[in-house]
Simulated scan of single mutants.
Amino acid sequence: MKFYFHPQAREELEQAIQFYKSQQAGLEKRFLEAVDDAITRVCRNPLIYRKIDESARKCRLLHFPYAVIFRLASEQIEIVAIMHIRRQPDYWKNRK
């Protein structure tokens, strides 16, 4: 299944990458691998992930305190947010 990023989700991803890059050499690469892994798992079987509202589901990243928030849109997956799980859990809900 194909996927695409909501523009704000892309920005969140870039910000998280920059944060991890500033923390430790190579940590941003491990973070990006964890994001890629989560998106791959979502694309493989999106319906196994827990619904967090009427149309959105959440897939946690391995080894990082982030989750991929996504919606099924026709035959594609919309990545709505790359969310830090310890901060404002509902901030992304107004994204269209």
Rank of each mutant, 00 (worst) to 15 (best):
residue 70 F to D: 06
residue 67 A to S: 11
residue 93 K to S: 03
residue 5 F to Y: 12
residue 76 Q to L: 06
residue 62 L to F: 06
residue 32 L to C: 12
residue 17 I to F: 11
residue 16 A to N: 00
residue 56 A to W: 06
residue 12 E to D: 00
residue 36 D to G: 14
residue 59 C to N: 12
residue 2 K to V: 12
residue 46 P to K: 09
residue 19 F to P: 01
residue 1 M to R: 13
residue 22 S to D: 04
residue 60 R to T: 09
residue 87 R to A: 06
residue 31 F to Q: 06
residue 88 Q to R: 15
residue 80 V to S: 02
residue 55 S to I: 10
residue 18 Q to P: 02
residue 36 D to P: 02
residue 88 Q to N: 13
residue 93 K to I: 13
residue 10 R to M: 04
residue 60 R to G: 04
residue 23 Q to W: 08
residue 73 A to P: 02
residue 2 K to W: 03
residue 20 Y to D: 07
residue 82 I to L: 13
residue 39 I to F: 03
residue 1 M to Y: 07
residue 72 L to D: 01
residue 94 N to D: 06
residue 7 P to F: 05
residue 37 D to H: 11
residue 65 P to L: 12
residue 29 K to M: 05
residue 62 L to W: 09
residue 63 H to R: 15
residue 68 V to C: 07
residue 54 E to A: 15
residue 79 I to D: 00
residue 75 E to L: 15
residue 94 N to T: 15
residue 54 E to K: 12
residue 31 F to G: 03
residue 73 A to H: 07
residue 71 R to M: 07
residue 42 V to D: 00
residue 14 E to V: 15
residue 2 K to E: 11
residue 45 N to W: 08
residue 52 I to M: 07
residue 94 N to G: 12
residue 61 L to V: 04
residue 49 Y to N: 13
residue 72 L to G: 05
residue 70 F to S: 11
residue 14 E to D: 13
residue 72 L to A: 09
residue 10 R to T: 04
residue 80 V to W: 01
residue 23 Q to Y: 05
residue 35 V to R: 01
residue 65 P to A: 04
residue 43 C to H: 06
residue 76 Q to K: 13
residue 42 V to K: 01
residue 57 R to G: 00
residue 68 V to A: 01
residue 41 R to F: 08
residue 36 D to I: 07
residue 53 D to S: 14
residue 33 E to A: 15
residue 1 M to P: 10
residue 73 A to E: 10
residue 25 A to H: 12
residue 24 Q to Y: 13
residue 40 T to Q: 09
residue 21 K to S: 09
residue 32 L to A: 10
residue 80 V to F: 01
residue 55 S to P: 02
residue 90 D to L: 10
residue 7 P to H: 08
residue 30 R to H: 09
residue 84 H to S: 09
residue 93 K to M: 13
residue 12 E to V: 02
residue 82 I to Y: 03
residue 51 K to C: 07
residue 5 F to Q: 01
